[in-house]
Design a protein around this nucleic acid. Structure first.
Length: 430
RNA sequence: GGGGAGAUACCGAAGCGGUCAAACGGGGCAGACUGUAAAUCUGUUGGCUCAGCCUUCGUAGGUUCGAAUCCUGCUCUCCCCA
């Protein structure tokens, strides 16, 4: 199966420029995807583009990851993005290095194969580019009429939009188009890929290449990832889902995928895993047979978590999930050694309490509302207990005058507070 | 500049002298059910030393035994006229 067919059945093609498939059949081709270096970690929204590159490399072609050090400072008018912050160069380089490390989990950067991936940063060629040079060498090849015809621009010019379009934003497509031209010239890069919102920007690039060099370049976009319920993909109550384990623990990462809805899981497993068509179809069939087992979600979560965080972290995440959501696990919990316990509850909010205070015994209300921020007030705590919503070490708390002391400690050091089904708090006695 | 209406808890919105920590709806949180889902049903939704007490109805004063409710000043919002 060739690259285009591969993406097609995975539902990853929104738009593709005529001739793209032929170009890829003809020779080993180089393609790039742009990534904003606004943070020192990717989040799962980036993953679609990264997966496109992965499939691209699998198909024997050469992927480029373009860090948008320059473009990221401007802000794409098609996005809802407001003013971007200027990154200083030190931060930019730091982010770039961190991103490369994460990308290396998906792409082969370091082998000596001819299609090894490469990372480039448009800041490197934009920083010395003077305004005068830019408008002379780039601007004159593209008409304003052409630029105005883009949806991203049109939308902002139409009467009802709240703020005008700044000149800088207007220029964005030219700057991005120039990236493509630059990579075309320096790396023989003939294809740019991205989300469907990037189509207009990408075609400005192919147009620029055509007019300036008479060369031919191509575009391929994938649909915006959506959720069946209309929510934004990749967000949880606590914000973005990051690849960096410091920002999003492997457990939370695993849980994110596990909690996808049935319809989304079917879509996501095609996009975010490399499973072959037959495997996916078999899984989907199995899932429809017994939806409550959530085989799809589990497989999806396993594969992506392992890919991003490694086998060991995946196993801990699964173990943690079983402990947190399994039944009758008070004993299991008591038997856990400290290391496993801490790994399981990595990322759970923690609070400290002194041993002296605890050895004197402390009321559950004080513990939960005063010593920790698990619940905002004692009244709230009282109500939660009355409603059966509070757990201590996976045991339901039934009396609001319950005393907690040293003997309740797990591993002689920890207390596990549970509010509702999914909210845990770890108290450390020291 | 003139006239009118209004400001209530997370949001919307009742209340118009005591029985008001304030109806009702939404949202939030929790429980049951379930697949760590959806839908549904139930409870709860100011604080505390919790059968009681304390602070809240734009803001500052006043009337009254007693005010979210009446009076006055102030701030803000909306509408109409110029």
């Amino acid at each position: 199966m060739n690259f285009v067919e591969e993406l097609k059945w995975r539902g990853m093609i929104h738009d593709i420029m005529p001739g793209t498939g032929e170009q890829l059949e003809k020779e080993m081709t180089t393609a790039y995807v742009g990534i904003d270096p606004t943070a020192d970690s990717l989040h799962i929204g980036h993953l679609v583009g990264v997966m496109m590159l992965r499939h691209f490399q699998n198909a024997g072609h050469r992927p480029l990851a373009l860090i948008g050090g320059a473009t990221g400072m401007i802000g794409d008018p098609s996005g809802k993005s407001q003013e971007r912050n200027l990154l200083d160069e030190k931060t930019l380089r730091h982010n770039q290095d961190a991103l490369k490390e994460q990308l290396a989990r998906f792409l082969d950067f370091y082998s000596d194969k001819p299609n090894a991936a490469k990372l480039v940063n448009n800041y490197d060629w934009m920083k010395e580019f003077s305004f005068l040079e830019f408008i002379r060498d780039v601007g004159k090849h593209i008409t304003v009429n052409y630029m105005m015809a883009k949806d991203s621009v049109k939308k902002r010019l139409s009467g009802d939009s709240r703020d005008g379009l700044s000149f800088t934003e207007f220029t964005y497509q030219l700057v991005q188009g120039y990236d493509f031209l630059k990579l075309y010239e320096s790396h023989n890069c003939k294809l740019q890929m991205g989300g469907s919102d990037q189509w207009g920007n990408i075609t400005t690039g192919t147009e620029l290449i055509r007019r300036k060099t008479a060369g031919e370049a191509f575009a391929l976009t994938c649909p915006l990832i959506t959720k069946a319920d209309g929510g934004k993909f990749g967000k949880t109550e606590s914000g973005n889902v990051w690849l960096d384990p410091e920002r999003t623990s492997p457990y939370a990462f695993y849980q994110f995928w596990l909690n996808t809805s049935d319809t989304d899981a079917e879509k996501y497993i095609k996009i975010f895993t490399l499973l072959q068509r037959e495997e996916v179809e078999a899984l989907v069939a199995e899932h429809q047979e017994a939806p409550h087992q959530r085989k799809l979600q589990k497989r999806l979560a396993e594969i992506v978590t392992e890919l991003v965080h490694g086998k060991e972290a995946l196993e801990t995440a699964i173990e943690a999930s079983q402990i947190l959501f399994g039944k009758g696990v008070t004993n299991t919990l008591r038997k856990l050694d400290e290391k496993t316990l801490l790994a399981v509850f990595d990322g759970v909010p923690t609070f400290n309490i002194s041993r002296e205070e605890l050895s004197a015994g402390i009321g559950i209300l004080d513990l939960v509302a005063e010593k920790t921020a698990a619940l905002p007030s004692k009244g709230e705590a009282r109500r939660t207990i009355k409603g059966g919503g509070l757990g201590l070490n996976k045991e339901k708390v039934t009396a609001d005058d319950k005393q907690v002391n040293i003997s309740d400690l797990l591993n002689d050091k920890y207390l596990l507070i549970q509010k509702g089904k999914k909210n845990y708090f770890l108290i450390i006695a020291e």
